[in-house]
Nucleic acid binder design. Structure first.
Lengths: 185, 185
DNA sequence: GTGAACATGTAACAAGTTACATGATTGA
DNA sequence: TCAATCATGTAACTTGTTACATGTTCAC
């Protein structure tokens, strides 16, 4: 369905008008963050392009000093484009995890470092869960947002639980490695 | 930690020697598939490059008709490079889901299509779970593989369970949309 | 006075995908 | 006979990131 930065911006702007800066913030702080990424370097060009194509309209708000806000709003043509993208079959999920890659080859890692990495990842997942739970109250009141939020919460809780439950086993694996080291540094 | 296709190939070749073709198959059929992707267009150049750099060694096995197998093996220098990559802090997970994006904007989708997409995704997750459970028996006997397999299984089971449990609610949301359509096609 | 948040934008770069090019064998 | 599996490789293309460029205000 071509879920690129363009479609992402259209989706956000279908909820309310916003500046590129605000879109970036929503992407990294809102529910989106769980399954989407986007940098300024991709958002700004996408907005400019879609404005030229008539999918967006622009209103500028001057500010003292700061470079005046460029507030984009979606047009009818933009809504049509979004509807079309939304009507396509979604591509397969893409998940890349360097953490899991490292865990897969844990027997080739220095045991001390391994545990540091493990705990850091666990904390990260906990923080992510906390964030997603926090943004729940300010959730837009439509079923999609609730569904995605609930899904993300469920998955993160499971991950955190798994990592907690398996921590002791990790420690004992490491203890075994210390006796029979394969690649301790 | 620069977990690119190079590191992926080094990791696989640290388990056993293989051809580019075999690496691709392992990536799409083994435990790797859950958190990694790689195409021929990235694997073959990576192998050639690392051979030139001395991280890999090459043995060719002629075959009748077919273009003789190029069997790569990791060298000491290659193992060192892998160890170095494994010693770096892993980058944050990257997860992209067009399905969740569509669910987020479900109120702008044709209800019938929405349910087709939902069921297709559910089936896909079930298939993925079945695959990961199947490859369990032929798992290399080291703790990393078991950990990653268990993690993947746990997450996929949770996803499948969630999707099953929320299917009825989806149906009622759709029923509500049919009465009060916002963007039915 | 130093760093963070606000605010926009460009250009070089990185990394990987898709499509193309080639060609035998095997099973439906 | 048509698709799939085996087997390698290249080149164009897509997509997005990082770093740079610029400048204010506000809190510590």
């Amino acid at each position: 369905m071509a879920m690129n930065v363009r479609t992402l911006c259209l989706g956000i702007l279908s909820l309310k008008e916003a500046t590129g800066y605000e879109i970036k913030k929503m992407v990294e702080e809102g529910i989106f963050s769980h399954f989407i990424d986007a940098s300024f370097g991709s958002i700004y060009p996408a907005l400019g392009q879609m404005l030229r194509e008539g999918l967006l309209s622009l209103r500028t708000e001057e500010q003292d000093g700061k470079p005046g806000k460029k507030i984009y709003a979606i047009t009818d043509k933009g809504r049509a484009a979004l509807a079309q993208a939304l009507d396509t079959d979604p591509a397969k999920d893409k998940f890349k995890s360097e953490f899991l890659f490292q865990m897969l080859f844990m027997n080739q890692i220095d045991p001390r470092h391994l545990m540091v990495v493990y705990d850091a990842y666990l904390e990260e997942q906990e923080a992510e869960l906390a964030r997603i739970e926090a943004c729940e109250c300010e959730l837009p009141d439509h079923p999609g947002a609730r569904f995605v939020n609930a899904y993300g919460k469920t998955m993160l809780r499971t991950a955190v639980k798994f990592l907690h439950e398996n921590r002791d086993e990790m420690l004992s694996i490491i203890a075994a490695m210390d006796n029979e080291p394969e690649a301790a540094s």
